[in-house]
Design a protein around this nucleic acid. Structure first.
Length: 874
RNA sequence: GGGGGAUUAGCUCAGUUGGCUAGAGCACUACGCUGGCAGUGUAGGGGUCAUCGGUUCGAAUCCGAUAUUCUCCA
C-alpha cells in the first residue's frame, strides 16, 4: 500500500466511526511562549483538554505536521544516524473529548491495524500501565481486560510510569496509556530472541507505532491526582513508522515517503544509497531535513538568527554540511528538492504546493549564504594551520575550534575532518568546555522565575469587548509576578477587558486600571494561548475590588489607522505587483506600519508611487468598514477572504472588508469605521529582509502629514541656503562640481608651493662622506605634505639624508628620511634620530629605520632641533 | 535576552607590536596588440578606512558609545 493511501485510509476509517477530520495546525506555533513548534497531534486541542474551551467536535481525527529537535532520540545531531527517528514527522491521531473511552479506542486501533492494514497479529505487542505506588495508582485493569479479549496474554506487556503514564506537563490532564509495538525483524532473528523481550528496548526493528492515551486524571499543583469529570482519548501514531510496518521495510527511509528523495540525491551526487554507512547517514540527514525545512518555511518561518528561525537555519545547515562533506555537494542542492515535496505532500498539505517557488528560493539563498560562511571558515583554518606549522604544533586548541564555531559559524565536525586530513588533531574536550561556558552565560542571562497565578476572584472566563468598547468595569481574576535579572514584572487577567492583546501584528493596548483607591498603569497586553494577559506597573493593593479599565484611546486610534491602512496596502500591492503577493509578517502600532510580503525583486519608484496612490484613493473614497464576526471559515473563504499561511484559524472567523471587491481579510484586529479617518498614507521605506521577502514601512494620518511637511521644509531650507535658485537639483550639482574642481586646484597649488620649497631645499644639500645631508626648517600646511616632501627629496637626491623641522598648523613636527642603503652602511636609524631630536620640542616619535616622524608641544624648540641636528651630523 | 566577530575602492578581501606616501584581485576608463577556453600589454580613475567621542607627538590599527551585519548560546 502506498503512503498516500495509508494516510487517507486512516482518515476514512475514523470518519466511518463518526470522527470529524480537521486539517493539521501549522507546524510553527504562535502565541505560546513555552513552545516553538508543534510536537504532537494533541497540541491544537490543548485548550479542550485543559477545559479552557469546549471542543467543537467530540470525535476528531487528523494527520498533524510535527517537528522535534530535542529530546532523547530526536536530538538534532542524532537524526539520520538511525533509521527511524526524524525531525519533521506526521502524527496520525484520533481523539475523543468526553465521548468514547478505552473500549472503542482499543478495539478500533486493533481493527485498523490488523484488518484494514492487514498487519500480522503475531508481530504486534501491546503494553498496559502496571500501576505506580508513589502515585497510589492501580494497574490499568480496564485496558488489560479489553486487550486480553483480542490479543493473546503473552503479547500484553506491563509498563512502568515512565513508559505507560502520560502527562501533559507538571500539572494538568494525565492518564495511563497503552502502546502498540511492532516487530519487523526477520523470522530467523525472531526465532533467536522473542519480540516481547525487545519492546521498549531501543531496538531499531521492534518499535512503538501507536500510543493510546486515556486521560482520566488531573494532576494538581501539590502533586496529587484527581479524577476528571469528563474523560478523553488522545492517540498518536507515527505515520512514517506505520508506513514502514505496512510496507514491511527495515528502515523508515526505505518507504515510498523517502525513496523519491533518496533517488534525487543519488542522481545529483552520483553516489548510491545503501553502500556505505557514512554516506547513507548523509543521505538520510538530507531527506529528513528537507521535509522539516520546507514545511516550516511554508508555514511562514524563514531561517533567521534567533528563536524558531534559528532552529530552521541549524537544520538546513546540518543538511548542507552532510551533503558537502560526504556527498561532495558543494553547490546549493537542497532547493532542488522543493518540487518533490510539492509533488508528494501537496495533496494533504496544499501550502507546500502553493508556495513551492518561494520555498525553493528561500532555501537556495540560505544554502548559498552558508556556503559562503564555510568558505570563509576554510580560509581561516588555512591560516590557523600555517601558524601551527610554524610553531611545529599539531593540536588545534579547543578555544580556537570554538572561536571558529561560535564566531564564524564553522562547524566542529568540519574542523576536525580537515584537521585530520592535514595531520592535526582538535582538542574536542576543550571545545566542549568552551561550549559549556557559553551555555552557562546564556542561561544566567535569561534566568527568570514565573510565579504561580494567584486567584483573587472566581474564574468565570475571559470576555474581550475591545471591538466595541474602550472602557469597561472589570474584576481581576488572577495575577502573578515574573522575576528576572531586571527585576519584577506583574501580569494580571481580567474577567472582562477592552484591552486588545498583541496579535496579528497589532501591538497590544496600554491604558489604566482605576479603582476607588488606586490607579494602575497597563504597560502592555499580550496573549498566552487564548488568555489575555495585562502587564501592569504594580500589583494593586486591593485586587479584589471592581476596576474601571480604560484603554489609551489616542494610541488605539493611531494604531487602527495603521492597521486598516495595512489592509488597503496589501490589496494595492496585489493590484500593482500581482497575485503572488503573500503577507509574510506585519507590525502595526501607533507610530507606523510595517508589512513584509513575498515578492522577488525590488519595487520600482513607479510601483511604490502607484501603490501609495491606490491606497490614498481608497482613503479618499471614505469606504465604510464591514466587520463580520463568527463567520464560518468555509464561508469566509468563499468570500475570497485573504488568509495567512501558517496561521491557525478556528471554525469561525472575523472578516474585515473594505469594499468587497477590494479588501477582504480574516483579521482579529481593530479597524477604523471609515477609511477617511486614515487621512493620508505615505510609504517611508521599501527594502529586502530575506530571500524573496520585501518589507514596506509606512505612516498615516498626522505622522504622514508631519513627514511631508518636514521634507518640504528641508527643501525650503536648501533653497534658502542656495539663494533660491530655479532648479535646486542643478544648483547642487554645479556646486558639487565646483567643489571638486576647487579641491583639485588647491591640491595643485599645494604641490606647486611644496615644489617651490623643494627646489629651494635642493640647493641646501651638503655633501659629507658621500652622504648628501639636508637640515632645514620649513613651514607646511599639513603633515601629509611634510611626508610627501621628505619622500620626494629622498627620491631626487642620491644618498640623501634629510632632517626637516616643520611648523605645521602652529605645531612643531620633525621628519627624518634617509636612503635605505645608509641604514645598513652607516648605521643610521631615522627612528632613533627623530626620537633624540624630538626631546627639543617636548615630544616623541618613531617610524621605520629609513623614515620617521615626531611631533611635539614646544614650537620654539624647532630652532634648537635644527641646531642640534647640525651639531650631530655636520 | 546574553556572548563573540565584522564594517578599508563598485565587488571580494589583505593591511603582523600604533609610524611601510592605504594595498591586491576582479570590475571600470583610455590606448595598443590579439581568431576561442575569464584574451593580453601599458597607463589611469576610484577610499572622510561605518559614525561619533577619547588616548597619543602620531590612529585604519588602542579604548568607549552608536548604527548596520554575521555568528553562537538561551
Amino acid at each position: 500500500m502506498e503512503a498516500k493511501k495509508i494516510r487517507s485510509t486512516f482518515i476514512e476509517f475514523f470518519q466511518s466511526k463518526q470522527h470529524q477530520y480537521v486539517p493539521s495546525s501549522p507546524i510553527v506555533v504562535k502565541n505560546d511562549p513555552t513552545l516553538m513548534f508543534t510536537n504532537a497531534g494533541m497540541n491544537q486541542f490543548k485548550d479542550a483538554f485543559l477545559g479552557n474551551e469546549i471542543a467543537k467536535y467530540s470525535r476528531v481525527a487528523n494527520s498533524q505536521k510535527c517537528l522535534r529537535v530535542s529530546g532523547k532520540h530526536n536530538d538534532l545531531e542524532e537524526v539520520g544516524v538511525d533509521t527511524y527517528h526524524h525531525t519533521m514527522f506526521e502524527m496520525l491521531g484520533n481523539w475523543s473529548f468526553g465521548d468514547y473511552f478505552k473500549k472503542e479506542a482499543i478495539e478500533w486501533a486493533w481493527e485498523l491495524l490488523t484488518e484494514v492494514y492487514q498487519l500480522p497479529k503475531d508481530r504486534l505487542y501491546v503494553s498496559v500501565f502496571q500501576g505506580d505506588e508513589g502515585d497510589k495508582l492501580e494497574k490499568d485493569v480496564e485496558a488489560a481486560e479489553l486487550w486480553s479479549k483480542i490479543v493473546p496474554e503473552d503479547r500484553i506487556i506491563l509498563g512502568s510510569k515512565k513508559d505507560n503514564f502520560w502527562e501533559m506537563g507538571d500539572t494538568g490532564p494525565c492518564g495511563p496509556c497503552s502502546e502498540i509495538h511492532v516487530d519487523l525483524r526477520s523470522e530467523a532473528e525472531i526465532a533467536q530472541v522473542p519480540g516481547r523481550d525487545l519492546v521498549n528496548n531501543d531496538h531499531p526493528q521492534v518499535i512503538e507505532i501507536w500510543n493510546l492515551v486515556f486521560m482520566q486524571f488531573n494532576r494538581l499543583a501539590d502533586g496529587s491526582l484527581k479524577e476528571l469529570p469528563a474523560k478523553h482519548v488522545d492517540t498518536g501514531m507515527g505515520f512514517e513508522r506505520l508506513v514502514r510496518a505496512i510496507q514491511f521495510k527495515s528502515s523508515n527511509y526505505d518507504t515510498d515517503l523517502f525513496t523519491p528523495f533518496l533517488d534525487a540525491i543519488a542522481k545529483k551526487s552520483g553516489k548510491t544509497y545503501g553502500l556505505d554507512e557514512q554516506t547513507d547517514i548523509a543521505f538520510r540527514v538530507i531527506v529528513d531535513h528537507i521535509r522539516a525545512i520546507s514545511f516550516t518555511i511554508a508555514d511562514g518561518q524563514i531561517p533567521s538568527n534567533n528563536k524558531a528561525g534559528y532552529v530552521i537555519r541549524r537544520i538546513l545547515r546540518r543538511a548542507v554540511r552532510y551533503g558537502y562533506t560526504f556527498l561532495g555537494l558543494q553547490q546549493p542542492f537542497l532547493f532542488e528538492l522543493a518540487p518533490l515535496i510539492a509533488t508528494y505532500f501537496g495533496d494533504i498539505f496544499p501550502e507546500v504546493r502553493q508556495q513551492q517557488e518561494f520555498i525553493a528560493k528561500v532555501i537556495m539563498e540560505e544554502e548559498a549564504s552558508f556556503l559562503r560562511t564555510l568558505d570563509h571558515g576554510l580560509k581561516m583554518l588555512e591560516s590557523i594551520k600555517s601558524e601551527l606549522n610554524s610553531k611545529n604544533e599539531k593540536v588545534i586548541t579547543g578555544k580556537t575550534a570554538f572561536e571558529l564555531y561560535d564566531t564564524f559559524g564553522f562547524p566542529l565536525d568540519l574542523t576536525s575532518l580537515i584537521a585530520r586530513e592535514n595531520g592535526f588533531s582538535v582538542d574536542e574536550k576543550g571545545f566542549a568546555e568552551e561550549m559549556e561556558k557559553q551555555k552557562t552565560r546564556s542561561r544566567a542571562a535569561s534566568e527568570q522565575e514565573t510565579g504561580d497565578w494567584v486567584l483573587v476572584n472566581e474564574d468565570t472566563g475571559v470576555e474581550f469587548i475591545g471591538y466595541d468598547f474602550t472602557e469597561a468595569y472589570s474584576h481581576i481574576i488572577k495575577h502573578r509576578t515574573i522575576t528576572d535579572k531586571k527585576g519584577d514584572r506583574y501580569q494580571l487577567v481580567l474577567d472582562r477587558t477592552p484591552f486588545y492583546a498583541e496579535s496579528g501584528g497589532q501591538a497590544g493596548d496600554t491604558g489604566w486600571l482605576i479603582s476607588d483607591s488606586e490607579k494602575i498603569r497597563v504597560i502592555d497586553t499580550k496573549k498566552e494561548n487564548d488568555l489575555i494577559v495585562h502587564f501592569v506597573e504594580k500589583l494593586p493593593a486591593h485586587p479584589e475590588v471592581r476596576f474601571s479599565s480604560e484603554v489609551d484611546r489616542e494610541k488605539r486610534q493611531l494604531t487602527m489607522n495603521n492597521h486598516s491602512a495595512t489592509h488597503l496596502l496589501q490589496s494595492a500591492l496585489k493590484e500593482v505587483l500581482g497575485d503572488h503577493i503573500q503577507q509574510r509578517g506585519s507590525l502595526v502600532n501607533e507610530n507606523l506600519l510595517r508589512f513584509d510580503f513575498s515578492h522577488f525583486g525590488k519595487m520600482s519608484e513607479d510601483e511604490i508611487a502607484k501603490v501609495e496612490e491606490i491606497v490614498n484613493a481608497k482613503v479618499r473614497e471614505n469606504i465604510e468598514l464591514q466587520e463580520q464576526r463568527n463567520v464560518p471559515i468555509e464561508e469566509a473563504k468563499k468570500m475570497g477572504a485573504t488568509a495567512l499561511f501558517g496561521e491557525k484559524y478556528g471554525d469561525f472567523v472575523r472578516v474585515i472588508t473594505f469594499q468587497k471587491d477590494f479588501s477582504v481579510e480574516l483579521c482579529g484586529g481593530t479597524h477604523v469605521p471609515f477609511t477617511s479617518q486614515i487621512g493620508l498614507f505615505k510609504i517611508t521605506s521599501e527594502g529586502s529582509i530575506s530571500a524573496g521577502v520585501r518589507r514596506i514601512e509606512a505612516i498615516t494620518a498626522k505622522a504622514a502629514a508631519n513627514y511631508l511637511r518636514e521634507q518640504e521644509n528641508l527643501v525650503k531650507e536648501i533653497q534658502d541656503l542656495l539663494k533660491n535658485p530655479k532648479d535646486v537639483k542643478k544648483a547642487i550639482e554645479s556646486l558639487l562640481q565646483e567643489r571638486n574642481d576647487l579641491r583639485k586646484e588647491i591640491e595643485t597649488l599645494h604641490l606647486e608651493k611644496a615644489s617651490g620649497v623643494k627646489n629651494e631645499l635642493l640647493k641646501q644639500f651638503i655633501e659629507k662622506d658621500g652622504i648628501n645631508t639636508l637640515i632645514a626648517q620649513v613651514e607646511l600646511p599639513n603633515a601629509e605634505s611634510l611626508k610627501k616632501l621628505a619622500y620626494e627629496l629622498k627620491n631626487e637626491v642620491a644618498n640623501a639624508f634629510v632632517i626637516l623641522a616643520a611648523k605645521i598648523e602652529d605645531k612643531p613636527q620633525v621628519a627624518v628620511i634617509l636612503e635605505d642603503a645608509l641604514v645598513v652602511s652607516k648605521g643610521l636609524n631615522a627612528g632613533q634620530i627623530v626620537r633624540e631630536l624630538a626631546k627639543e620640542i617636548q615630544g616623541g616619535g618613531g617610524g621605520q629605520p629609513f623614515f620617521a616622524t615626531a611631533g611635539g608641544k614646544d614650537l620654539a624648540g624647532l630652532e634648537k632641533v635644527v641646531a642640534k641636528a647640525k651639531e650631530m651630523f655636520l
